Simulated scan of single mutants.
Amino acid sequence: MPRFAANLSTLYPEHDFPDRFAAAAADGFEAVEYLFPYAYEATELRRRLDAHGLQQVLFNAPPGDWDAGERGIAALPGREAEVREGVDRALEYAAALDCPRVHMMAGLVPQNADPAPYRATYLPNLAYAAEQAATVGVDILIEPINGRDMPGYFLSRQADAHAVVQEVGAPNLKVQLDLYHCQIVEGDLTATLRRDLPTGRVAHLQIAGVPDRHEPDAGELNLRHLMSVVDELGFDGWIGCEYFPKAGTSEGLGWRHKFQGENA
């Protein structure tokens, strides 16, 4: 049976962020993820998790200046010192929150730029992050992101992500497979799942409806079929619900009840 984690950056927008933990627990979620924890003290987030019996399963390393439009810095030449500072900060939060996975965003590159210097920066930064994370039992994740939602993002295709993981060669460097992004970029989701999940390189899945990123059963994806493939392949990781509810979050969770029973 799929294990769904609520993404608190996108779900429950009707609540202030600290109150989203309670809302997710009230709807039967047992795990949460979100973009960034750094606006809050780790002790406060830990208190919210514990109070509502939730696991923290994923968050992102510092992405550079998000408000100014940056979307990660791991592949950006000249930002190596900032990357290392960010890794240290992320791992401090991961330890405090008992979070086993941290996603490192690659960043945006100019149109038609030579990818070589970016890749030459990206791989050593990921190797450093994985080495540091291994000492505290944390996996570092990389995620291909579609260029429609995030134009210029350095990493967009699954094969490229797996090639990076294999080249770095760290056992705790893994891929975050978002079926929403993958469908937009390359499609063929069933074949992708059957090809990539058995490798052991995929540590986390995410879902949302395509094309509008609403509830995951809305649009062109056959969610029941995809989740049956995930089960068939024995994937036991978490599946993050990173979508924007069309109306109220709780009111739109009927799709989840189909997988986890009417009391979910």
Rank of each mutant, 00 (worst) to 15 (best):
E41P: 08
E41K: 14
A42N: 07
A42F: 02
A42E: 09
T43W: 12
T43K: 14
L45K: 04
L45N: 02
R46Y: 10
R47P: 05
R48C: 15
R48L: 15
R48K: 14
L49A: 08
L49Q: 03
L49Y: 02
L49R: 02
A51R: 08
H52V: 11
G53E: 11
G53N: 10
G53M: 06
L54T: 02
L54D: 02
Q55Y: 05
Q55E: 14
Q55F: 04
Q55A: 15
Q56G: 10
Q56K: 12
Q56Y: 09
V57A: 09
V57T: 12
F59S: 03
F59M: 08
F59P: 02
F59G: 07
F59T: 04
F59N: 05
N60M: 10
A61P: 02
P62Y: 05
P62G: 11
P62S: 11
P63D: 10
P63Q: 11
G64N: 02
G64Q: 01
G64W: 01
D65Q: 11
D65E: 11
D65P: 00
W66L: 15
A68I: 09
A68R: 14
A68W: 09
G69Y: 00
E70N: 06
R71F: 14
R71T: 12
R71M: 13
G72H: 00
G72P: 01
I73Q: 10
I73F: 10
I73Y: 11
A74P: 01
A75I: 00
L76F: 01
L76N: 07
L76I: 15
P77N: 12
P77M: 12
P77H: 09
R79Q: 08
E80L: 00
E80V: 02
E80N: 07
E80W: 02
A81F: 03
A81Y: 06
A81E: 15
E82C: 04
V83D: 05
R84C: 07
R84G: 04
E85F: 10
G86V: 05
G86K: 04
G86A: 11
G86P: 07
V87K: 03
V87L: 12
D88Y: 10
D88P: 04
A90C: 05
A90G: 07
Y93D: 05
A94M: 06
A94L: 07
A94E: 05
A95S: 14
A96H: 06
A96W: 00
D98V: 07
D98Y: 04
D98R: 12
P100N: 11
R101D: 11
R101M: 15
M104F: 13
M104T: 07
M105P: 01
A106M: 13
A106I: 04
G107A: 12
G107L: 06
L108N: 03
L108R: 03
L108A: 05
L108K: 03
L108D: 03
V109P: 04
V109W: 04
P110H: 10
Q111W: 10
Q111M: 12
D114R: 04
D114I: 05
P115A: 03
A116I: 08
A116L: 15
A116V: 14
Y118D: 06
Y118S: 09
Y118P: 02
Y118K: 01
Y118H: 13
R119D: 13
R119E: 14
A120G: 08
A120L: 08
Y122A: 09
Y122L: 14
L123F: 03
L123P: 00
N125F: 01
N125V: 02
L126F: 03
L126Y: 00
A127K: 08
